[in-house]
Nucleic acid binder design. Structure first.
Length: 574
DNA sequence: GCCGTTTTCGGCCCGACTGTTTTCAGTCG
């Protein structure tokens, strides 16, 4: 059974091959849009196909729907098989090289017989590229540098790793002479879980001085490009970074443009066009050619008849339509959170005492803290036996007595879900706890039916309150379990269990797609840091960002609820 | 290939930067 992600990858592949083949650009664009739309859809195409509803997927029309159906029915696609006979699939990897696009890939193939990265590299080293039409020595050199960069470059990086770097650069940028204003934009501003390049924007009347300081910065390894409005560098650790500069009067359109996403911007520009306007990073231009400049981003949206759209929503997942109808959601904010329901102490694999975690929660202004150390089955994490669990309750009571009414402690467990779906503690032990988070940590690679049934069985245990990091993914390397999400969500709704948005930057699990779908089904969500030390409680903002990208407001999230309501919910099945 | 109260046919975002091309094509975001 092909997942939406797998289908999307196949349509991207088709788009790449068509582009190299020289197909009209709008056809390849249609495949890419369909792929992106599948990625953003929580409803599995397989399910929609059964209900004859494939055409409901945005950007999927008759031709692509038929191809999805064929892929689901047969696991193959005749159209793609033929395409791969026409265009060598090895050419697709050439597109990863900076400065190599479909036209050059086709040129290398047709005029030099190159069909792989290895062949491209040996041709470049032998000086055979410079004689191709439209290329010279410099192009050949850039391609060699690009091949090197490709080897150094790891995949996308975690938001949690890049964000601190970005904030330091922003501080540096704001301190440069002539810089009036600066922001981090791009996927960082949209809080995507992973980041490719880092995009910074600045307002200045003296862009060349700012650009010179940027490209001359001590951390820069290599300058990839330098102009008046835009420069691009590779840092010593391999991260690539862009800086865009416009005068302060144009900062609004610049910030809007660089924040993306690309698809959001395309939609916005189409909307502008319908109004007879042309939107760019420099201005909004009327049909007659008269420019209007915008210093602020909200005014750009206003000029198009829209309320300001929070960056987290700018993924072309219906936000422009919602804005047009004045139906944008009121989004959750970190300040709405006053509980963390999944944390660890030195009773298991956390690094500090229960008392220290409680103080950290107080320092954040929380009203509720759940301590959920691991259960005995997770031996590597020093999981608690039943005896130790009961001993921990005694310590918790003592700490609670010292805290008085300032913070409500909940004794919980992050209880292992065994490979068969049974739990690591017997029911009578779970019944003693204030809160139970059940999680998968092992045997994540079980077949779909098995791992789904396992999770469903755990949810049906009447003592389970929350499913922790439901997919089990760990970015960038470990994929989540191959779950049948519709079955998981149906079981969650039926059993009254909440699903976690785990805020660890490497997890961010549920992701925004399934969090949005879960909330639309009325399933409560819990945003938890899974902190193993006090500082990690600061990860809450990453969890909140997932919720915002999922269009969630405070009401959808357990840890914003008034304490009495939360406690009542925890008692719901007892 | 998709899509539509300005269209079921004829559109489909816009500009910066680079290299090679003497006026522009390719790539990128």
């Amino acid at each position: 059974m092909l997942s939406n992600q797998e289908l999307a990858a196949l349509f991207e592949r088709i788009a790449d091959l068509l582009e190299i083949k020289g197909e009209v650009i709008y056809k390849t664009l249609a495949y890419r849009r369909a792929a992106e739309s599948l990625r953003g859809s929580a409803e599995e195409a397989a399910l929609l196909a059964n209900q004859n509803r494939l055409l409901e997927i945005p950007a999927v029309g008759k031709a692509i729907a038929e191809k999805i159906q064929e892929l689901l029915d047969t696991g193959k696609l005749e159209f793609l098989v033929r395409l791969e006979q026409e265009v060598p699939p090895g050419l697709i990897e050439l597109l990863q090289v900076p400065d190599v696009g479909p036209k050059k890939a086709a040129l290398f193939w047709k005029q030099a017989g190159i069909t792989s990265l290895a062949e491209l590299e040996s041709a470049a080293r032998a000086g055979k590229l410079r004689s191709l039409p439209g290329l010279g020595e410099k192009s050949e050199g850039r391609i060699l540098e690009g091949l090197d960069a490709l080897k150094r470059r790891s995949s996308r990086r975690l938001l949690g790793n890049v964000r601190p770097v970005a904030l330091r650069w922003l501080q540096w940028l704001r301190a440069q002479p002539g810089v009036v204003q600066a922001e981090a934009a791009g996927s960082l501003r949209r809080w995507r879980a992973t980041i490719g390049d880092l995009d910074l924007v600045a307002a200045s009347e003296n862009s060349s001085a700012v650009m010179a300081a940027f490209t001359g910065h001590a951390d820069v390894q290599r300058v990839l490009g330098q102009g008046e409005n835009k420069s691009s560098v590779e840092l010593k650790d391999g991260l690539t970074m862009q800086l865009w500069v416009q005068p302060p009067a144009r900062f609004g359109t610049l910030l809007q443009f660089v924040s993306g996403s690309k698809d959001h911007n395309v939609r916005l520009r189409e909307l502008a066009q319908k109004k007879g306007l042309s939107l760019s990073e420099r201005a909004i231009t009327a049909a007659g050619g008269a420019e209007t400049l915008y210093a602020g981003e909200a005014e750009v949206y206003a000029a198009l008849g829209l309320p300001w759209i929070p960056p987290e929503l700018r993924e072309d997942r219906g936000e422009i339509q919602a804005a047009l109808e004045n139906k944008l959601p009121h989004l959750l904010e970190t300040a709405d959170i006053h509980a963390d329901l999944h944390t660890h102490t030195d009773w298991s694999d956390g690094s500090v005492s229960l008392q220290a975690m409680a103080e950290a929660a107080l320092a954040r202004g929380y009203q509720v803290l759940a301590i959920t150390d691991h259960s005995v089955g997770l031996g590597v994490a020093n999981g608690l036996s039943v005896d130790r669990l009961r001993a921990q309750r005694a310590e918790m009571n003592a700490v609670q007595a010292r805290l008085g009414g300032r913070l409500r402690l909940l004794q919980g467990s992050e209880v292992e879900i065994h490979a068969d779906g049974s739990l690591d503690f017997p029911d009578e032990v779970l019944a003693e706890l204030d809160i139970v988070v059940a999680s998968l940590h092992s045997s994540l690679r079980q077949p779909r039916a098995q791992v789904t049934e396992r999770l469903v069985r755990a949810m049906r245990n009447p003592h389970v309150d929350i499913i922790g990091h439901p997919s089990g993914r760990q970015m960038p390397n470990r994929e989540g379990a191959d779950l049948d999400w519709e079955a998981v969500l149906a079981a969650a709704r039926e059993s009254g269990v909440a699903l976690e948005i785990n805020a660890q930057p490497a997890r961010m699990d549920l992701d925004e797609i399934y969090a949005r779908r879960a909330a639309s089904l009325g399933i409560p969500l819990a945003i938890d840091t899974d902190a193993h030390e006090p500082d990690q409680m600061g990860w809450m903002e990453y969890g909140v960002s997932v919720a915002r990208r999922a269009w969630l407001g405070p009401a959808a999230v357990l840890n914003t609820w008034p304490v009495e309501q939360l406690l009542a919910w925890l008692q719901r099945k007892r």
